[in-house]
């Protein structure tokens, strides 16, 4: 049976991991490769590396980092952050990324999804949607949640699917950072109405939140950062908990 995926997200700035404290057995928690290897060994199903560097040098740093990750990590990983062109994607895939995630650039130019899917295949194109509940509906936000658009998250998810996106990474800005649980309603609405997998993100605080987003939210995967980096929940412990709640999980 296909299992639900648990995906730690590592924020990377100038080639170093941001966040992440007190991991025994890791020489340098600031090293994305070391931290990624650790997560792979304790049972993460995939990894997401989100590049938050804002400098012009970022592509060079990022591509050499992606090469290092690909050499050392034997589970799938996605790279995201500021990706806006076919050339960006081509370079990262050549360096060994399994998937790339696109966000604002795809909203500004939806044709980008079509081009990327045709060129590289849907399986490596993750569409990231940042969404916020505003006056009765969930809207798409750009630039890390700073700019509101008039596009509804549900409509955008449907369009992106028909354009060839392979997965949707859905982050609720209302829930992100609150540790009060995932946005169940919009996750469920999108997951039940698109034909591609949905990764829920934003709000994980307890193990119950994960079982909720899988059972009620119908998510195919769940992504979290802080609770893993600050060791509030261990991945082995979380996976055992989910298995006990009859959720298909790879142990």
């Amino acid at each position: 049976m296909l299992t639900k995926r648990i995906i730690p997200c590592l924020d990377v700035k100038d080639g170093k991991t941001v966040k992440g404290i007190n991991f025994e057995n890791i020489k340098d928690v600031g090293d994305p490769v070391e931290l990624g290897k650790f997560y792979a060994e304790v049972g993460a199903d995939e990894l997401v590396f989100l590049d938050i560097t804002a400098t012009h040098e970022k592509r060079k740093t990022l591509s050499s980092l992606v090469k290092k990750i690909a050499k050392n990590i034997n589970i799938p990983f996605t790279v995201g952050g500021g990706i806006s062109s076919v050339e960006d994607v081509s370079l990262l895939l050549q360096c060994g990324a399994d998937k790339i995630s696109i966000n604002s650039a795809a909203v500004r130019n939806p044709q980008l999804i079509t081009e990327l899917a045709n060129r590289f295949g849907s399986q490596c194109i993750v569409l990231a949607i940042d969404t916020k509940f505003y006056e009765g509906d969930w809207y798409v936000y750009l630039n890390g949640g700073q700019i509101k658009t008039d596009i509804k998250a549900y409509d955008w998810a449907k369009e992106a699917t028909s354009r060839g996106a392979g997965e949707i990474l859905l982050t609720s800005m209302n829930n992100d950072g609150t540790k009060q649980g995932f946005a169940i309603d919009i996750t469920r609405k999108i997951s039940e109405n698109v034909s591609i997998p949905v990764i829920a993100s934003g709000g994980a605080g307890t193990m119950e939140h994960f079982s909720e987003v899988f059972i009620q939210g119908k998510a195919d995967a769940a992504l979290a950062a802080s609770i893993f980096h600050y060791k509030e929940i261990g991945i082995p412990q979380l996976k055992r908990f989910l298995l006990q709640h009859n959720i298909p999980i790879r142990i």
Binding site: M1, L2, T3, Q123, G166, S195, P197, D220
Partner: peptide, 27 residues
Amino acid sequence: LKIPQIGWNSIDNLSSELFKGIENDEY
């Protein structure tokens, strides 16, 4: 079903030296 299938699934009825040392139901 969600298509593509993406993720970890188990392999069963293993019958080859390719799977030497690997148990049924591994992901």
